[in-house]
């Protein structure tokens, strides 16, 4: 059974929340990460997530939600995002963000494509396809930054494993609204 219009808006809006969080996380890390190559990597990717948030926020408006509708996720997923943000050290930050968070985000977009109707929800599908291509490029960028600077500074406190576990445990991660009175909608 495919997602309803309301569920599509809730899911894309929550992905917008994750994108804004990612943008702000990278922005917070740029001044506080010592390594030049990591700063450049994070700085370039800030704009990627801003664009994703913008595209998702425009699409939610087309799905009977507000322009730039950004619902908070479930507490478990929000906690995982907070853990990501708390990561220190250039090496640990790239590992947590580009190896773990991006992989999980790509899975979430893949799940969306599998769950929605590719024809009825084609505008969302196009947005998601463009975003997933960006995520693949960002992962490749991280590999290049690591090659440029093999001796990335570290904090000694890795969060990647804990983050992977927190993301895996955060199911469900979208907080769906109840159907609105007065709007007839399909049954999922």
């Amino acid at each position: 059974m495919t997602l309803t219009v309301r569920e599509r808006a809730d899911t894309l809006g929550t992905l917008r929340y994750a994108s804004v969080h990612a943008m702000e996380t990278l922005a917070a890390w740029v001044p506080t990460t010592p390594d030049l190559e990591a700063k450049i990597l994070f700085g370039r990717h800030i704009w990627e997530f801003a664009q994703h948030a913008d595209q998702l926020g425009r699409r939610t408006h087309e799905l009977r939600a507000a322009l730039h509708y950004t619902p908070a996720p479930t507490p478990a997923y929000d906690g995982a995002l907070a853990l990501l943000r708390s990561t220190a050290g250039a090496r640990e930050r790239i590992s947590a963000f580009h190896d773990v968070f991006l992989a999980d985000l790509a899975d979430k977009y893949a799940d969306y494509l599998a769950a929605t109707d590719a024809f009825l929800d084609e505008p969302s599908v196009r947005v998601v396809e463009r975003i997933t291509a960006d995520l693949r490029r960002m992962t490749a960028d991280a590999a290049e930054a690591r090659a440029q600077r093999p001796a990335l500074t570290g904090s000694g406190v890795a969060t990647a494993a804990a983050l992977a576990a927190a993301l895996a445990a955060a199911r469900p991660w979208v907080r769906h609204r109840a159907p609105a009175a007065g709007i007839a909608e399909a049954t999922a």
Binding site: L36, F42, G43, R44, I46, W47, Q51, H68
Partner: peptide
């Protein structure tokens, strides 16, 4: 949001310049 988008764009441009 529109201004935040510009700040994000500027951050990325300056990183690319660096």
């Amino acid at each position: 949001w529109e201004l935040r988008m510009w700040l994000a764009r500027q951050a990325a441009d300056e990183a690319r310049h660096a």
